[in-house]
Design a protein around this nucleic acid. Structure first.
Lengths: 241, 241
DNA sequence: AGAACACTTGCGGGCTTCCGCAGTTTCTCT
DNA sequence: AGAGAAACTGCGGAAGCCCGCAAGTGTTCT
């Protein structure tokens, strides 16, 4: 059995290697990549079927790498292992997991035993295993009060990029007023006006600010949204001539 | 000689302990705290004069802890050891270093030899030692093109919190128009309009967005600015009755 | 089928923001 | 001290944003 580790921090990588060797004696070959792009290449070349993936890496991050790997071989088993319980990362993952594939999510603060358990369960048995703390987060983000549905999330990304209402309307195919309605519910859900007694705020900016502090958004997500936007812009320019 | 380690990641902490033992046999006592608040208390109680401090920690971060420690005993020698080369952290540090105290900054990606060198140089010899990569960043941030001066930075923080022009003017004691001038130069320096051919943007939001992607700002800085703002608000309410 | 509810859209008004123009103050040289 | 540069300030207008109101469309119950 071959396993690929994708992890850019050397201490964490060597800890992982030890734990993996202990947990899975059936591993015959252990590959190691230190960023998402190298991980993708490695997975393709070596026809890897089991991966342990860090999420937060310089350059190409774990989510993007996982998406690329699953696009080629949806059966690949991936265990995500990360410090970060950011909602932004979770949202990214739940969006790309193929229906029938095995994956797991373990926090780096988990005990060695729990890590080893997850390694066996996901990589060997093909189970799905999500750390309890993560699960709690996902539940919270799915609770009616704070859940952003996909279209609100899309508008949030556009807002974060600095697009004006009219442009968002064009990009998302909604009327101006509908965009503004979405913004209103965003302000509500992000708690922009929430019980603060203070003076009036610039809601647009405050919404972005809260999206960051509540980990609904993070820098990587923002950068990837920017790339999407530029691609769309290029397409639009072509179609308008 | 007593040394205090403040580091919340267990792998990094144990690596640090090893390196410290190798580099400084004269250390007789090694204390360990896992967050900023505990680090402060430990430093005070044990009358610590040498600290190795992680910057990025949950709860109270390294910058705030260092400020508190230096406020009590400016002679304390502090070596910052961190993954993060964010400008936001650097700006924080250069603001609080007492004129005559010894400090250093080493990246976690540095070799063991370089770390040991920095440990000896800063903690034992009281030298100042800054990783070359960090130094490069500081220089860039001091270059005329992108440098935000203190008052621009203050306005950026207020903007990020969602304050409106009028409120910023009140808080910072400037006229409304001056605040707007600051904003204009912020937009310029953050490249809000920079050679992008795309449609017009919401500059306020885009400025915040760019501040994040260029690492001028990060979530911790934002949260601490929010606390400052709330304190100011409370004071203002009292003085107005 | 009909009632209740949610979502979308246009209109309009009050407010904020961006920014050019021009006068005044403050800083910085020689 | 005096000249020139840089920063600060008020005014005013165009554009964008926030949002209440009301009419239209679609969905889900009973």
């Amino acid at each position: 059995m071959k396993v690929l580790l994708v992890e850019d921090d050397q201490f964490h990588a060597s800890y992982l290697q030890d734990a993996l060797a202990e947990a899975l004696p059936e591993v015959t070959e252990m590959l190691h990549a230190t960023d998402g792009a190298a991980g993708e290449a490695e997975a393709r070349d070596a026809r890897i079927e089991a991966v342990v993936m860090d999420l937060q890496m310089d350059g190409r991050n774990g989510i993007e790498a996982a998406r690329a790997i699953w696009a080629e071989r949806p059966g690949t088993r991936i265990l995500f292992w990360s410090n970060y319980s950011d909602e932004a990362y979770l949202r990214g993952i739940s969006r790309i997991v193929p229906e029938d594939s095995a994956y797991g999510y373990v926090l780096k603060t988990a005990t060695r035993e729990r890590l080893k358990l997850a390694l066996r369960a996901v990589l060997l048995e093909g189970q799905i295993m999500v750390d309890r703390e993560i699960h709690r987060l996902q539940r919270r983000s799915a609770s009616p009060r704070n859940a952003l549905d996909d279209s609100e999330y899309a508008v949030l990304l556009d807002l974060a990029l600095g697009l004006q209402d009219k442009l968002i309307a064009e990009r998302r195919g909604m009327s101006l007023r509908t965009v503004q309605n979405r913004l209103l519910s965003l302000y509500d859900k992000l708690g922009v006006d929430g019980e603060e007694i203070g003076p009036a705020l610039n809601k647009r900016v405050k919404a972005l600010s809260r999206a960051f502090t509540t980990r609904t958004l993070n820098v990587e997500t923002l950068e990837s949204a920017q790339r999407d936007y530029e691609r769309w812009l290029a397409g639009r320019a072509r179609s308008v001539h």
